[in-house]
Amino acid sequence: MMRKLIVLAVAAASLAFLPDSHLSASTLQRLSLTDMIQKSTMIVRGTIQPGNSAALRGSIIYTHYQLSVTTAFKGAPGPTIDVAVPGGALNGFQQPVAGAPTFTPGQGYVMFLWTSKSGLTQVIGLSQGLFSLTTNSQGQLTVFRGAASEPMVDSSGQSVTDSNFQMPLARLVSDIQAVLAGGVIQ
């Protein structure tokens, strides 16, 4: 049966191009900043180098980017980190994964990274651990990410987790240091 299917596919080769063969959908669990600090294996500031490469891992394509590290806030990475993103293009076919992070070479980022037991390093929570670095009107370096996290609240409106999504880099660094020291974010 397998052979027959391949024959059928090749027979259709002269027709319109099918740009992808995998379709993805994901279920996300929103992470608070505290969650990301605690669950990441590395937190770094750096820039993405131009170019990337793709490789098949099991039956899933990962696109690999090289992150030049300027500062490490957690972990002890080398000068560059191989950051894998699920999905990509390989051997003429594409495998897009909805929700996967996208990088701009040369753009500064703070990344919350997570390395699996088998050694694959990814941004935590698909795109949740990816913060762009910008300079605000006061000249402060600021980290930015799309939207808020999802804390639960109690009857008095108190509790659980923070929901920061934009803050000065210096504040983020102090929050990281506080959580890593066993404290809480103020």
């Binding site: 259709a12 379709l23 996300l28 669990q29 990301m36 039956s59 495998q95 694959l120 929570g125």
Partner: peptide, 16 residues
């Protein structure tokens, strides 16, 4: 290889 913050994902594979 599923990082924290991602509960699950599904990739339907299609034939052309």
């Amino acid at each position: 290889d599923i990082p924290p913050g991602l509960l699950a994902y599904t990739i339907p594979t299609v034939f052309g």
